[in-house]
Amino acid sequence: MSWTLDNLDLIGSLTLEHLAQSVPPIAAGLVIALPLGWVAHRFRRVRGLVLTVTGLLYTLPSLALLPLLPVVFGISALSAANLMLALTIYAVALLVRSSADGFDSVDDDVRRAAVAMGYGPLRRVFAVELPLAGPVILAGLRVAAVSTISLATVGILIGVTNLGYLFTNGFQRRLVEEILAGVVAVALVALIVDVLLALAGRALMPWARLERARTRGRAA
């Protein structure tokens, strides 16, 4: 514990940098994945193609993707932008399927009722379908958030400083405590973000909690 206590300032600053590199890709991934998920839900002929292509993105090794992105997009290979773009791609890969599943979970009777009440297509998506799909999408978002925070540590391999520094520096100096501090810090950051997302979901989608309670009541 002595090394950890003596380097709390370093761990704190690395944590802030880690969050700054992780949170934007999570948000960007959600913004990109929602319309793709809706397309996969709405147009069955392209559903398989959309889900397969986006799913394959997650299979790309990060050590191959990070050198490739600068060539394609003309950004610096040793920059936070390169890492954040890669993290966004992985977030999209995870979130498209959960977005499609979320829209699939909305009952067709609800859609027909919205149409009968005069809701246009765009208004129906944002006012009816998206809120009801929210719990499923949120579940996928929580998985993507934890994955993104974990994957961000590879940024240290291209010179982007974050909590991954504790892994490489600890390995080079053979300081097991530094490596363990990095593991714990990444896990805590992921846990805190996950809890915050869960709390936000409860606040923004209270109907989901009521529906779960109603389901448990019927089961009992």
Rank of each mutant, 00 (worst) to 15 (best):
M1D: 11
M1Y: 14
S2N: 15
S2I: 15
T4E: 13
L5T: 11
L10I: 13
L10V: 14
L10R: 14
L14K: 02
L19D: 11
A20V: 15
P25Y: 04
A27T: 04
A28K: 05
G29F: 05
L30R: 01
V31W: 08
I32D: 06
I32F: 14
A33T: 00
H41F: 14
R42A: 13
R47P: 08
R47H: 08
R47K: 13
G48A: 02
G48L: 02
L49T: 15
L49N: 09
V50Y: 01
L51H: 03
V53H: 01
V53C: 11
T54D: 00
L56Y: 10
Y58T: 06
Y58F: 14
Y58V: 11
T59Q: 11
T59P: 08
L60Q: 08
P61Y: 01
L63N: 10
L65W: 05
P67K: 02
P67Y: 00
L68F: 11
P70E: 01
F73R: 09
G74T: 01
S76N: 14
L78A: 13
S79A: 07
S79R: 01
A81R: 14
N82P: 12
M84A: 02
L85Y: 06
L87N: 00
L87I: 00
I89V: 12
I89S: 03
Y90C: 05
Y90I: 06
Y90R: 07
A91W: 06
V92Q: 00
L95I: 09
S99I: 09
S99W: 07
D101E: 15
G102R: 03
F103V: 01
D108Y: 06
V110M: 10
R111V: 03
R112H: 15
A113H: 02
A113S: 11
M117P: 13
G118P: 14
Y119S: 09
G120C: 10
P121Y: 01
R123N: 11
R123M: 12
R123W: 12
R124A: 03
V125D: 03
F126V: 14
E129P: 13
L130D: 02
P131S: 08
A133G: 10
V136I: 07
V136M: 01
V136L: 07
G140Q: 10
V143G: 10
V143T: 15
A144G: 09
A144L: 00
V146W: 00
V146L: 05
V146P: 03
T148E: 00
I149G: 02
S150V: 05
S150F: 06
L151T: 03
L151S: 09
V154N: 00
G155M: 04
I156C: 07
L157I: 11
I158L: 06
I158S: 03
T161R: 15
T161C: 00
N162E: 10
L163G: 09
G164Q: 05
Y165S: 11
L166H: 09
F167E: 07
F167Y: 14
T168A: 08
N169C: 04
R174Q: 15
E178D: 05
E178F: 10
I179T: 08
I179K: 04
V183Q: 01
V183I: 13
V184D: 04
V184Y: 03
V184S: 05
V186F: 09
A187F: 10
L188H: 11
I192G: 04
I192R: 02
D194R: 05
L196K: 02
L199Q: 12
G201A: 07
L204I: 12
P206S: 05
L210W: 13
L210H: 12
A213Q: 12
R214E: 15
T215C: 06
T215F: 12
T215L: 14
G217Q: 15
A219M: 12
A220R: 14
